[in-house]
Design a protein around this nucleic acid. Structure first.
Lengths: 291, 291
DNA sequence: AACTATTTTATACCGGTAGTCCAACCTTTT
DNA sequence: AAAAGGTTGGACTACCGGTATAAAATAGTT
């Protein structure tokens, strides 16, 4: 990921959020980013692909944040609220969600398929989390509950798009989660469900798990790029993380605890996106070995 | 409403449903309808306006059908299922709903506002119906229940867009309605709600109620256009309807019963849309006097 | 420092889009 | 028959996403 490319992405994102996807021409992006058309098409094969990159980035940010806040603290409905809040805050002022939808209904098949997979993976995540939070006995109803919760929340957001405070957001999320609990009780009592468990899983096209050794290398390389003031602690963290990663049975609790502050060292630095990508790989490894 | 204009609308609708809104150019519509560009822009100020007309028509069709099936039979959850089914079948094979969404996210403010009002009026209708079906005591929670039901159902439809049989549709609707009942019980028990009653009402910009006298005239005029084979019964119906309409206190039960077969005389006839519009006005009068 | 390879720039160009404009045409009213 | 007004076809504009390309700038290698 070129730094210049990141600059273009940021410019495009700014414009998309401000004026909408359809109302932003490539020329606008070129002007905003101060680049020429040729460069743009060096980075992206199309305007759509540029949009996909933006969404991919925000999905990654949300995933890492969710894993990080799960790393400290007990699991339960309150954590679920926080994790859902992450996605909503990601769509700053509900505008990113418009991009999602713009893509969904843009007649472009490739884009639609991509967004569908994003949607599905969000539902799969939610189904899994509901099972974790409310116990294995509700698993047969988790898929339906996830789908309905997603729909309810979507309505509460679309209906009041003027939410700035995360207080207001939390309030709605909590309300919807309590309703979801009622739905789970109701479905359990009557043993009614429409979807089978695991309905949303689409592991087929998910990328292969990165190798721990490879990730360990990347972490060390990243630490090398830190500025003097954070370099020392960064190297400490990185040394521990990479050593632990190459162990036979990594102590995942420790890894999770250390991973969070290490990643945060890169906040605001030019390679923040790269650091996030590497740590995202780390979290995937950790979660797969937890099972 | 010109007959030629209706012809253009039908052509556009066909193309939109088949290829999507974005993938249908005005030239396509011109070719399909066999008209010229000048004519098209005589009827509509833009492609968007053409789409709005199509949606307006389908909204009207759905409203009349809902009122008509309510006219015979007892009220209750089963009727509600049928009425909801009307809207879903209207969006034939889930494709019209894409038009809705295409409009919602098209960056065009005017279109968005229009669709928002359609959305709101659907929610207002649902809130009202829930109160009717489940009793006045749930009215404080009806707005929330309507919003959540709408969201849940939307997910179940979007998620399985390959539904052709209305059996399958009914099954999902019934499932969602049972969940809505659980939500209503839950909210009632805990006395929790986020929205106040009547939240979705937007009477401000709804057109003024048509005068009964005027509608009576239109009904007589319509009957005159019927072909010989249905002319006699049409005139009988029309005579009764218009006479009753001009009474001090119209017998609304009778009116409803007679209105249905009268409107159906125009099915398949060129002025079917016009007849529907007139009868739509009649239903609005009847419902307002029922209160 | 010189040479090479790659990236970036600027611009012309393509086919397609929504929408404008207008002179010619047709139909209805007078 | 004449006037009026809606209808027609098509030329036209401005813009879009995307392609092509030659010149300029930059980076990497020796």
């Amino acid at each position: 990921m070129n730094e210049r490319k990141q600059h273009v992405l940021n410019a495009a994102k700014r414009l998309f959020l401000e004026n909408g996807f359809a109302n932003t021409s490539i020329q606008n992006i070129l002007d905003e980013a101060g680049i020429s058309k040729g460069t743009f098409y060096n980075y992206f094969n199309s305007k759509n692909e540029c949009l996909i990159s933006i969404i991919e980035e925000s999905v990654e940010i949300a995933a890492v944040r969710r894993d990080e806040i799960a790393a400290d603290g007990q699991d339960g409905p309150e954590l679920l609220v926080e994790q859902i809040l992450v996605r909503l805050q990601m769509n700053r002022e509900q505008k990113l969600i418009r991009l999602y939808e713009a893509i969904l209904h843009s007649g472009d098949h490739e884009l639609r398929d991509y967004m569908k997979s994003v949607h599905l993976s969000e539902l799969a995540w939610l189904e899994q989390r509901l099972s974790e939070v409310y116990g294995e006995q509700i698993r047969p109803y988790a898929a339906d509950a996830a789908l309905m919760q997603f729909g309810m929340l979507g309505q509460y957001l679309q209906f009041a798009p003027d939410i700035t405070s995360s207080e207001e957001l939390s309030k709605r999320i909590r309300f919807v989660i309590r309703r979801t609990e009622a739905l789970l009780r109701d479905m359990t009592e009557n043993d009614e469900h429409l979807l089978e468990a695991g309905k949303f899983d689409i592991r087929a096209d998910s990328p292969p798990l990165p190798s721990p050794v490879r990730v360990a290398e990347e972490i060390l390389r990243l630490a090398d790029t830190l500025p003097p003031e954070s370099r020392d602690s960064g190297l400490e963290f990185a040394g521990f993380l990479s050593a632990e990663l190459e162990e036979e049975k990594p102590r995942s609790g420790l890894l999770k605890t250390v991973a969070v502050p290490f990643r945060k060292l890169f906040d605001g630095r030019p390679n923040e996106p790269e650091a996030r990508t590497v740590m995202s790989a780390l979290w995937r490894i950790l979660k797969s070995s937890d099972l």
